[in-house]
């Protein structure tokens, strides 16, 4: 851990410094792929040191420092744990952020998207929805595979050329998941998103 939040002299927890990234909180280099099990262990270890429960009877401002650190730690952990939020965060850190809150439907998916709306509105039968969902799940699998390849290339190739592809991959994945979820609602099959 590069930034030690404890005072050398008194051993007390210090205030949260500015400019700390989620990666350097965990002593990690910026990366798209990481060992999630190791991250979890590290999160538990840091929580043990920083959690406000450890400072419940301490004097002001120690408990508020602990709360600030833990809030940051929780966000860092939740962001880095999932493939998708982690990828978004890496894009943001490398200056490739763009407002993808309400992105256009990816051209590749436009047709499916409109078919889906039609299907949701018109279809009274389960069969066509199941088939459609099957197709989307396959596309999602391909999308995840593409992410794997991009993540491997990310460490070796210039990020400039990859950032746009990664962005597109994420948006496509997001649309696929939300379409699958919409279909799931229709037929009562909740979709658990494992990548986020």
């Amino acid at each position: 851990m590069p930034q030690i939040p404890f005072c050398d002299g008194c051993g007390n927890i210090q205030d949260l410094p500015d400019g700390l990234t989620y990666f350097n909180l965990f002593g990690l280099t910026q990366t798209l792929k990481l060992d999630e099990e190791a991250l979890r262990d590290h999160y538990y270890e840091l929580s043990r040191k920083l959690h406000p429960d450890r400072y419940a009877t301490a004097v002001h401002p120690i408990p508020s420092y602990a709360a600030k650190w833990t809030t940051f730690l929780n966000r860092a952990y939740q962001t880095l744990l999932g493939r998708v939020p982690r990828s978004r965060y890496v894009l943001e850190l490398t200056g490739h952020t763009q407002d993808d809150k309400a992105p256009q439907v990816p051209t590749e998916l436009a047709e499916q998207y409109f078919d889906l709306q039609e299907l949701l509105m018109e279809s009274k039968e389960v069969e066509p929805i199941l088939l459609f969902r099957e197709d989307l799940l396959e596309r999602l699998q391909a999308n995840e595979l593409e992410w794997e390849l991009l993540a491997d290339r990310w460490t070796k190739e210039p990020k400039e050329s990859l950032a746009a592809s990664l962005q597109e991959n994420l948006i496509k994945g997001r649309y696929l998941k939300s379409m699958i979820a919409d279909l799931g609602k229709k037929i009562g099959t909740p979709y658990a998103d494992s990548g986020n």
Binding site: P52, A67, T70, T71, N74, R75, Y77, Q78
Partner: peptide, 8 residues
Amino acid sequence: NTTVPTNA
């Protein structure tokens, strides 16, 4: 199901 404390 977001772990507390947290902010956003």
